[in-house]
Write a protein that binds this DNA or RNA. Structure first.
Lengths: 143, 143
DNA sequence: TACATATTTGTAATTATTACAATTACATTA
DNA sequence: TAATGTAATTGTAATAATTACAAATATGTA
């Protein structure tokens, strides 16, 4: 369910979420940066363009967008909540060395969920941790 | 890989982790409380028994135990890291209403992980969110 | 353009976590 | 058992992320 930027705007309108300037900027930022940024990163980058942007607004915007179902809140590690556009379900892999986060495709609905028969499941998350190929190479070079 | 308390002590010794009183108490607490407690909960409960226990010690102990591979650090939501004994892989379900966390069995190794061929995967996590049966019932009663 | 409403700002408060130095307990060896 | 070196614990203070809130501003609509 990858959406165009215009589709997303229409969706926001439909859900009665205002299309304020800053809100759209945050959304646009996420659309252009698929690196799962933290609030800090989003704020730092957008602040260069929009001098009056406050961090609170970044939080507000992200929460509003998450509420509208356009943005997913990623909690992989403490002290660094990350944000991502809502797309088809995929897993996240975090490299313990360089901290980068990678997507990988995964059919989460495929696996059996014994013991959750009477639960209303609204969100599914999968995240792995380990070392990415790039860091593995570096380690090998240092031997 | 459910372990007895004695097994765990042996394991700690083997890995050169000291068996201090407080460390064991924290471990024992986790063994007896499978509710995925937060640091706050562990501290509050153990403090009743051990008046001199400090919160820092709880953090230290949990980190040492996690290092030793006996405890798993659960990050489902911000601002509430939770801890669990390391057992066979299972998923976690968090109820958005009452906040309770449930385990469910899942064969994480079963699903294909396309796109992670050259990655060194060291940890796999699955967590779902939604509403638990008990809260679903309550909602129905209020209709 | 004017109005009602929603958004943004900025500051202050809250909370979880970590850093660190001083104290205390532990295990080992004489 | 006492002495010794190492590791654990404590307590306080610092850091950092997030939230609350009231005042100022921007937004969309009539």
């Amino acid at each position: 369910m990858r959406r165009s930027f215009d589709d997303m705007k229409a969706l926001l309108k439909q859900r009665n979420i205002g299309l304020s300037h800053h809100r759209l900027k945050v959304l646009e930022y996420l659309a252009e940066h698929h690196c799962h940024p933290t609030v800090e990163q989003i704020y730092a980058d957008l602040h260069k363009e929009i001098a009056t942007l406050s961090k609170t607004t970044v939080y507000n915007s992200l929460h509003a967008l998450a509420e509208a179902g356009l943005v997913r809140i990623l909690t992989i590690e403490d002290n660094e909540t990350r944000y991502d556009l809502e797309t088809e379900t995929h897993g996240h892999f975090k490299c313990e060395q360089c901290g980068a986060i990678f997507n990988f495709t995964i059919d989460i609905d495929a696996f059996a969920t014994n013991g959750l028969k009477h639960f209303d499941i609204r969100e599914k998350n999968v995240y792995f941790k380990g070392v990415c190929p790039s860091c593995l190479h570096k380690a090998k070079d240092n031997e």
